[in-house]
Each structure stands twice: as structure tokens, then as C-alpha cells.
Design a protein around this nucleic acid. Structure first.
Lengths: 336, 336
DNA sequence: ATGAAAGCGCTAACAG
DNA sequence: CTGTTAGCGCTTTCAT
């Protein structure tokens, strides 16, 4: 008796003594129904504890009300918070999220992309760093990226990374650093945080020092590589701008181990300002990304694409061009 | 042309010059097919870039290959890592996850439960703290909880919280603490970490000091409440066992602000040992939960329920009784 | 070894 | 206002 299948529209119709269509109508509140029928149906629904089968609804070609969210991994606070905020923003519009952790592996991401299409999600929000996956070019589906330039045709929501880089670097200089170094994930022209750092150093006539530890370095190797990167810096480097907070934490630890006092002898600024890391390290100075706003904007652009594609057809029209970068904020730690 | 609908089985059949059934057969590798037909169909599939519509497949009553994961929020490192590990374990079995952040609100959790049933997920993994939601009693679907006792009939996967509480408290005593206090989320008999703490203090003949700051306290109020809780402790308290790492971080901050040196004047132990917090605070001593193992076990028990319910009917048979708690590990910070 | 036809649960014309 | 009738894309008897 416990394994009896879920009740269907037909069951409700039978109990209420009306037709399938009528039940469907009261469910979707479409057309004119007599109050009496409405009541009878409502009664039958509660009696049977009926819940419309969304799968069947989706099959009809309507919509699955599901959005795929691809991130490196929700285990990282930044992406965890991003996913939570996206889910939050989407909930208000009746959507849910299918979370896909690519773990930085292109193959896995490719599989997920396929899977999301197979599941007929209504759209995709893809975050993570700028690995290029050609498959995205094939996706004919509402698609928005977060902090990830895939192609000029795909809207990308991001914060003002370059400004953040400048704010961070200037802050270090203001606090007396003579030669701040940059510790980032991947160096190159697409790295706007690096661009901001370089711009400030250039203006000040200081020779930049850039070190990298790849974003997807597994935890075990990470500590060693970070240490090595820091140890390889010229001796006159007296500050580090780390392009994410967790890396900044590693710099803090390195400084402690090397007997450099922070912030007296050595200064550090991070990036992201996630709520989790703020709780763990309230004194870390950092550039805070407006995560909730990023999520809201991504959702907004995506939903716009979705409704446009329902009408006209092509979701990738130029009207969804990349919106302006969202402002970042310098958060100064009390003691560092 | 870009908005042309996704190809269907019928399209493939037409191109390959065979019937629907045949295509379905080669897709599912069922029955005897001539090699020639197999090849022709495979060709048509790649030519059309066909991807089976999972929604239609699911409608047939098979399986959505989707598992609902309910957690307070993936924004918290513990639940983010848990979700990522669950997804990881599930991927190997061809399942994906629908993530639901209840945000600690019963109403939202109720809605999600409904939604998951509507979506015909194949099972649910529910984590979070022991708020009791009667709705879970109604769920006739494979269901496993993680660190959350819902009912004796619902298998619960957890780590050895009580042992963790004892390890933490004993560690503080060993390091010279005279009167360790407990800072936790909710006090009561179900709180096994607290039970471990109380047991050790009882054996040592020390009067316990328990303070609470609710798990779902919003960030803005949290700092103040935590401070107040700590300030309200008797003066002879010289150590705190915080039942999660982020709270432990707040204790560290409080100690610093009060001029107490850690670990010389004041000692702290946390709980969870997430990778994110370990990176942020490598020196924090903590009790590490085996998150990957918890996830793997939850998935294991759930999949067992799923295959059992496919055969016999009732997923909630006693054979899925709660497995033994998983071992925890004391991680000693270098400098604290 | 392959095909025809009947659904899965629901929505949406089209009648009445 | 309400019911009849086709499908949505796929799987699965049952024929051939």
C-alpha cells in the first residue's frame, strides 16, 4: 500500500467526477470554471494528496523550470555563495537549479553541457575561469556566464575586476608598501585583476612581480607551490595582492612562518570577500565582490533571454550584450 | 535556423531509414540488431547531433536519474563541500543533483519537498540540523539524512559526534585548560557533540559552561550575539570548544579583541575541518568530519533503497537502518 | 531482426 | 462553462 503510485490527473478527475481537462484547468487557473467545480476538484486534490507531475508537464514542450548552473565546485566559498544566491534569485521566479561541479575538468564540463541539454533545462548559468570550451559555441539555449568570457555573443556578468586590482594595489601602496607583488591563478591579458595591478605599478614606476598558482591545483600540492612562489619573490617585495582570499590566507601563513609581521613588515590584500572567509578571517583586507548582485544580474539577463526565445526564437540576440561590470568594494581589516 | 527544435527519435529514424523502435533499441542496446542497422543509426545520430530527451524518458515511468539534495545552504563550506562530494559520488552512477537551499526556513523546506516529489526525483538526501518537519513522515521515496535524525525509520548517516566532542574537550584539558566552555548552536540531548563535552567535564568533576548562538542566525547579528555569549562566561573559563569552525574563528577574534593570547592564555578547538576553513585558518585545531566518506555512505544507502524500491516496493525497510557513525579526527593546529 | 501501436501524465486546440 | 481528442518524445509489448 505504501508503494501505490502517485495519483494522476485522471485519478483526480474520477474522484471529482469531472473530465481531465477540467482538472487541468483549475490547476492552471485557465478559462472560466464554476465555483462548484473548482471546489470539488480542490477537494479531490487534497484528498488524494495529488501533486502535478512536472515531468509530464515539461514533456509537453513547455518548460522544465530548471536552470543548469555550472561552477568549478560549490565546495569553494565563492562558488558556493554564488550558487546559493543564484538559487535564491531564481526561486522567486519559480525556477530551480541543477548544480554541476565541473571540477575544472573540461571533459566533465562537456558531459554536463550535454546532460543539461538532454534534460531540457530552460537555460544555463556558467561560472568559473576562462578555460575555453568550444562546445559552448554550439549551445542554442539561453546562456549567461559569470566572470567568464566565452564569446562576445554570450553575455557575461562580472564585477569590475580591473578596478578591484587597482583598489587593492593602491591600498597596499597607501599603507606604505614599496613593492607589492601579485599572486594570481593565471597570468595574461584576460586577467583584469592583474591588469589593474599592473596599471598602478606602471604609474608608480615600479617593476611588477607576478607569481601564479593555478586555480585548479589540488589541495595537497597547493601549499607547497604557493610557498615556493612566494619564496621566489625578490627580497624587496613587502606586500602581496592575492587575487582570491584563500590564497591570501596562504600568504598570511607564509609570512607568519617566515617571521614577517603582518601588517607591520608585510602587507596582504585578498579578493572575493565571501561571507565564509570574512567570518574565518575578519581582519583580512580584501576586495569584495557583490555576489548577490552578480547572481541577480545573471538571473535577470538569463530570464530575459528565456522569454525572448519563447517569442522570437533566437536567444542569442545582441540586445543581451554584456551588462556593465558591477562595482567592487575595498574592505579594510581591522588589524592587518 | 538557429532556433530549430532539438532532433527527436523520429528524425533519427527518418534519416537512418528505420523505425522508431529500432533507433530506441540501438540507443538502449536492447535486442538483436544487425551491425549494418546499428551503424546507419549511429551515423544519423551524430549527423543530427541527436541527444535523447531525458524528460520523455523519465515520463515513461522509468527514472529521472536525479536526486534532490536539501541543505541549509551551500554557501557554508561544510554544506558546500558535502554537496560537491555527494554530486561526485552520484556522478559515477549516472545521477545528478537538484540542490535545494532551505536557508533554515521550514516553509521553504516544505516547498522544496513538494517540488522534489513533483519532479519525480529518484531519491532525496537531506542534511542540516534537527529541525523537525513532519512532512518527512509522508515522503514515500528513498530518503537518507546526513547528520539529522528525522525518525528511526529514516537512515541517518553521520560522523561520531560524541567522540568528536570528547576528543575536542580532552585535547583542551591536555593542553592545560582548566575550565573549557562549550559554544554551540542548539543545546539538548540530541546534540552529541555537547554530550561528549559534558561527559569529559563530568568525569573531571568540572562544572560545564554552555553557550549557544543559533545555527541560522543571520550574519549581521551573529557577531554581536557571539561576543555577548562569550562575555557572559565565568571568568575562570580559559578555553572554548566551538562546535563548528566558523564559530571557532569568531572565538579567536573575540580572544584577540579581549587581549587574550591564543593558545597561551586561551585555547580554542573547532569542528568540521572543511578544506576551505583549513586553508583560511591552517592553525586552527579542529575535529575533522570525513565529509567525502559521509557523502559516499549517504549515496550508497540511498542507491540501495532505490534499487530495492524498484523491486519490492517499500523503500523504507529496516534493512536500511542507520549505519555506524563514521570516525572523526583531531587535527592539531601548528601554533594554536 | 525489425516494425506498428499503445501508452506514460499532462496541455491545448477544437467542439459543444 | 465543460468535455473530446490529439499529441509531446520515448519505451515497450506484441506482431511479423
Amino acid at each position: 500500500m505504501s508503494a501505490r503510485r502517485e495519483p494522476t490527473l485522471a485519478d483526480v478527475a474520477r474522484v471529482a467526477g469531472v473530465s481531465l481537462t477540467t482538472v487541468s484547468r483549475v490547476l492552471n487557473n485557465r478559462g472560466y470554471l464554476s465555483q462548484e467545480v473548482k471546489d470539488r476538484v480542490a477537494e479531490a486534490i487534497t484528498e488524494l494528496n495529488y501533486r502535478p507531475n512536472q515531468v509530464a508537464r515539461a514533456l509537453h514542450g513547455k518548460s522544465t523550470h530548471t536552470i543548469g548552473v555550472i561552477v568549478p565546485t560549490v565546495a569553494l566559498p565563492f562558488f558556493g555563495e554564488m550558487a546559493a544566491e543564484i538559487e535564491n534569485a531564481l526561486t522567486d521566479h519559480g525556477y530551480r537549479i541543477l548544480v554541476c561541479n565541473s571540477m575544472g575538468r573540461a571533459e566533465r564540463e562537456r558531459e554536463y553541457l550535454d546532460l543539461l541539454v538532454s534534460h531540457r533545462v530552460d537555460g544555463i548559468i556558467s561560472g568559473g575561469h576562462n578555460e575555453n570550451l568550444s562546445e559552448y559555441g554550439t549551445v542554442r539555449m539561453p546562456l549567461v556566464t559569470v566572470d567568464r568570457l566565452l564569446s562576445p555573443r554570450i553575455p557575461n556578468v562580472c564585477c569590475d575586476n580591473e578596478k578591484g586590482g587597482r583598489l587593492a594595489t593602491r591600498h597596499l601602496r597607501t599603507r606604505g608598501a614599496h613593492r607589492p607583488a601579485l599572486l594570481t591563478s593565471r597570468s595574461g591579458p584576460h586577467n583584469r585583476r592583474e591588469a589593474g595591478y599592473l596599471a598602478v605599478l606602471h604609474d608608480a614606476g615600479i617593476e611588477p612581480v607576478v607569481r601564479t598558482v593555478d586555480f585548479h591545483t589540488p589541495d595537497p600540492e597547493r601549499a607547497g607551490l604557493t610557498e615556493a612562489a612566494l619564496d621566489s619573490m625578490p627580497a624587496d617585495v613587502d606586500a602581496v595582492f592575492a587575487t582570491d582570499d584563500l590564497t591570501a590566507a596562504a600568504v598570511l601563513e607564509w609570512a607568519r612562518a617566515r617571521g614577517r609581521r603582518v601588517p607591520e613588515d608585510f602587507k596582504v590584500v585578498g579578493f572575493d570577500g565571501t561571507s565564509a572567509v570574512r567570518r574565518a578571517l575578519p581582519n583580512l583586507t580584501t576586495i569584495q565582490q557583490p555576489i548577490a548582485d552578480l547572481a541577480a544580474q545573471a538571473v535577470d539577463v538569463l530570464l530575459r533571454q528565456i522569454s525572448a526565445s519563447r517569442e522570437s526564437g533566437d536567444p542569442h540576440s545582441p540586445e543581451f550584450a554584456a551588462p556593465a561590470p558591477l562595482p567592487v568594494k575595498l574592505l579594510v581589516g581591522v588589524t592587518s
